[in-house]
Computed example of a mutant assay.
Amino acid sequence: MESSETSVPKLEIATDPIPSSVQIKTETDRRKFLFNNQFMSDVIFLAGPDKQRIYGHKPILLSASDYFFQLFQNYTANELPVEDSDPNIFLELLRFLYYGKIELTAGNVREIYIESKKFSMEKILEAVENFLNQTIDSKNVLCKLMDNRFYEFKSIEQKCLRIICDDPFSYINQEDFTRLDRKSLGLIVTAKTICCSNDQLLGILDTWQKTNNEENVSDLRLDISSKSIVTWKKLLFFGAFSSNPISESLRFTVNKKFGVKITGIGLYYQPIDEIMKVHVFMTCHKTCVPIHVPIKIFVNQEYTF
């Protein structure tokens, strides 16, 4: 999980006027130089309990933020207290408003999220969501799902569930699984598409409750038992359309520790003759017994069998 105790590097606050020798060629250059600079500043933010001075420019801020647009209509003073905001975090928000850059790290992402919500900065919230999405992998997916109870980003929830539900038995013996909060557990065991049976889902629930015996999960048991939960995934294999001769064989392997139902194989091609025969051979890895399924494919038609 993200740690709020991770130290955040102190940001250097530059307040010197723009050097006269510097040539500013673009709008981005101008905004970079104006960022937290006394030059032409018409508002000073007093950030944190020490009231650290951070320089702003109303025209830039109100054009980039709904919050500041509303604020500056009624607030005419040159100094604006933001005592409950960390100066470093507040600077990161202003940096984004000035020229679209923000330094997101594991140590500051939660505070930036909180401040962005406070100041209604939707674009920064999108940047936080993208940053968190990029940090998810199969090793930390349980922690990321739990962390998302704080953020409640739908895309992160969906990504975590896809990874977990594709191979749930890789995760139930991990310590992080027993540390799952009840809501996260419920998302997993009631997922519409998960690669295990209902009985196996009840077993997963039992594993979690052994460590969390104070939790009542009777409603989750009822959901698992009564709802029609999809326990398989469609595997559709389509050959690409090509004028080149079709390969004599199309091979694929299903590598799962549990049963997978193959619901269809789609084929589309243009043969020379009006009618061609396609032979499908399916072999079970354990028994090596081939299953021969002959079918007919007609010209310019698509078939799923």
Rank of each mutant, 00 (worst) to 15 (best):
D273C: 09
T211Y: 14
G203V: 12
I265W: 02
G203H: 12
K210L: 12
T231W: 03
I275S: 07
P245R: 03
S218R: 02
R251H: 13
A240W: 07
T253I: 15
F169G: 04
D206K: 14
S226R: 05
T193S: 11
G259W: 04
S228W: 02
I172Y: 05
D176P: 01
D219T: 06
S197T: 15
K192G: 10
F177A: 05
N212G: 04
C195D: 07
D273T: 00
I194Q: 00
R182C: 04
K234G: 06
E175F: 07
R221G: 06
S243Q: 11
S225H: 01
Q270K: 11
Y171H: 06
V260C: 08
A240S: 09
V254W: 03
S197N: 03
L205P: 03
C195P: 01
G266R: 06
L250A: 06
L205N: 02
S197F: 00
T231H: 05
P245E: 02
A240I: 12
E214F: 02
P245T: 13
Y268C: 05
E248D: 14
S243I: 11
K183C: 07
G203I: 13
G264S: 14
V230G: 15
T178G: 10
I265L: 14
I204W: 02
L202E: 01
E248W: 04
Q174L: 15
A240F: 09
V217S: 02
S242D: 13
L267W: 01
G186P: 00
K257P: 06
G266W: 00
N213C: 08
D273K: 07
L185C: 04
S197D: 03
S225C: 12
S249R: 15
C196H: 01
L201W: 00
D206W: 02
F238I: 15
Q270H: 09
K233M: 12
L201T: 06
F252N: 06
S226T: 10
I194F: 00
D167R: 04
G186T: 04
I224C: 10
R179L: 14
K183G: 03
E175P: 00
D206L: 11
F237K: 08
T231R: 04
V260F: 04
T178V: 12
W232R: 05
G266P: 00
S249G: 08
L180W: 01
R251K: 13
V254T: 12
K256Y: 13
I229F: 05
Q270R: 13
C196A: 02
E215S: 14
D206T: 13
N244D: 15
